[in-house]
Amino acid sequence: MSYEVIGITVLWTFLFGYLIVASIDFGAGFFSYYSSITGTRHLIHSIIDRYLSPVWEVTNVFLVFFFVGFIGFFPDTAYYYGTALLIPGSIAIVLLAIRGAYYAFNHYGSRSRKIYTLMYGASGLLIPAALSTVLTISEGGYIEVTADGKVVFLVKELFQSSYSWSVVLLALVSVLYISAMFLSFYAHKAGDLPAFHIVRKYALAWSLPTILSSLLVFFAIHGHNREHFEKMMERSWMFAFSFLFFMLAVYFVWKKKNLGLSFIFVMLQFAFAFYGYGSAHLPYILYPYLTIHDNFTNESMAIALIVAFVLGLLLLIPSLYLLMRLFLFNTPYVKGK
């Protein structure tokens, strides 16, 4: 494997990690708000809270890791995306900031306020919508480089594109699906049956829309970037596996058994689709201007970053394991004892 492939794999893996942990967090925020309208908040609030409070800070780091690493491995992306995305990027920062800060204020502050819950819930849907547009843009057609080398972001094209909206839809639906599937597992583990019934209903309700919106994105890519679509077809087995794991995951939730395994299948479902999409996207990181080969950093920096990454993992994996053992797989804690 060449350094650039290792680099993009590492980064893609962190983005995948972010996709999972952030979806759980974003969806939980939305469900927390939604349940306060429907009057079931008292049933699911504590389960959501018990999971989120020790891990909320960790979620953010996955994202930071992804974009800092990206600039390290592919410095030219900073120039292209940075110039083009000033406004959407800034809005995403503001949303992330409000979300993170108000979670802490609400949670650790003296009393919880409805407006905080609303902000927390709404930002949970707006952030994935905003962030997913970066993937849309990478598909090409929304950034233009003029003859004198100026990078221009074609906002109008983005807003009028059906592809762009299908990706937003998929992002939103997936967030709710992943989150509800996780909360089903967590509530079940806690033995909190009233909460389990509610989140299980959410999970089943969002399962079909997830598959439908994925299909929609498939068709939209077909219309938008044929080259990418062809490459995805070459990897159709990955998407078939993704669908298989989806079926198994939903089946277990339906039958109310093997919920831990069910969530692992959810992760596999998204992993297969995510890596299938990503590997078909290569070599482009911004179609057609940037590729992983032409816009890679120098070799010595690449080696240094990879070594740092391996050493970092040796430190992080045991720490993450400890965190999960204490709060995720520790039955007394999960049960609130």
Binding site: S53, V61, V64, G72, F74, P75, T297, L323
Partner: peptide, 29 residues
Amino acid sequence: FMRVAGQSISLPLFLETFAFFFEAIFLGI
């Protein structure tokens, strides 16, 4: 600037994220 910084000084930026990650995990615990 980041285009040049990415080529030359991204290692400590990357390491900073690791340090922050490490801190965030244990603060939660």
